[in-house]
């Protein structure tokens, strides 16, 4: 098929799909899909990502609506947490035998 034949046709928007596997768990990113609107995105997500009962709840989010941290600035971005080891319980010395600590 030549490029001309399909000019004017644009693909459906891209959606990111998040699935809650069962009650008590968070929604987790499962993948993406194309759909013309939110309702169809939900239906397509059901057919593409939960054919074997992998979920009890689905979120679909327009891919363009997601703001992500940039991997380029990863080190600088997460630096503030890197030198605060005192936020971890293992930082503290506790004598052997101290109960309930």
């Amino acid at each position: 098929m030549s490029g001309d034949e399909r000019s004017g046709e644009r693909d459906w928007p891209l959606w990111e799909v998040f699935v809650r596997a069962r009650r008590g768990l968070s929604h987790v990113h499962a993948g993406s899909l194309h759909a013309p609107d939110a309702a169809m995105a939900l239906r397509n997500a059901r057919d593409v990502y939960t054919r074997r009962s992998e979920g009890v709840s689905i979120w679909v989010v327009p891919a363009g609506a997601i703001t992500a941290s940039s991997p380029d600035e990863k080190d600088a971005f997460f630096d503030p947490a890197a030198d605060k080891v005192y936020r971890h319980p293992t930082f503290y010395e506790v004598p052997d035998g101290a109960p309930h600590l």
Binding site: M1, E5, R6, E9, R10, W12, P36, D37, M40
Partner: peptide
């Protein structure tokens, strides 16, 4: 090619 009108119609509906 046969499905093109369905894709276009779904976008128009949306």
């Amino acid at each position: 090619r046969d499905g093109a009108w369905v894709r276009t119609a779904a976008l128009a509906h949306a």
